[in-house]
Amino acid sequence: MNIMEGAFVINIAVCLKQVPDTSEVRLDPKTNTLKREGIPSIINPYDAHALEEALTLRDQVGGQVIVLSMGPPQAVQSLKKAISYGADRAILLTDRVFAGSDTLATSYILTGALQKLMQEEPIDLILCGKQAIDGDTAQVGPGIASRLGWPLLTYVSKVEKISPQAREIMVHRKLEEGREVLRASLPALLTVVKEINEIRYAPLPDLIRGATYAVEIWNNEDLHLDPTQLGLKGSPTWVSKTGTPPLREKGEMLGKDQASSAQIASLLAERLIPDIVVPNR
């Protein structure tokens, strides 16, 4: 596919979501509601690692890194930032009809954009984050892979080997109790965990490029997607209500009536042990 007179390169697309910095999310202690005002927007941290991996691979093999994001117009900020990390090209997918998309519609839109991109140049690898820290579903990456019919490799903690010639990739996947090593054919879609790399410090010219870069904007006139599959209309899941986790029930004070420490310890152990000890499975 990418054989250009003997030279192998890989083109990598990175899907990047701009998210509110949930570590800055604060609860109003009085009303127990979420304070969103003034919370900074950041690149979804897992996606920053996906981008870093893409840049490393590009620098090793040659090729291009193209960053895609679907979101409101303000998301250009995160895309400019991606350019300042060293990405070659950045595209924002923004349109009112995209708003309110759940993961099914989101993966539809991103896939549409990727397919348009692939009419211009081939893509060998798509990198996503493990999950977004706001929606927290981890569903968009698998959704795109399914739509494209590409191999899906989730929770990737290491790219062991990539070989554009043999059109193969070998990766480590993080599992609950260890990891596994997999080989897949290219093109493929990876979702990555934070352990995959450390984010490097980009050279200054890339930062200046990020500051001057004009992000490409695509809307549905560019993508021509089926309007019934977009936004709220195209989203089967529907948030019927949101709330904050319920306040905790009033607890029990142990040993108020001058019990000795030993008595209280025994009382506490009685309360806890049934809950924390189970027979070996």
Binding site: K161, I162, S163, E198, R200, Y201
Partner: peptide
Amino acid sequence: MSQKNKKKQDIALAKES
């Protein structure tokens, strides 16, 4: 310079550096 340059030498590439 605090360059956290990651070593990815273990990537066996089709074409060596």
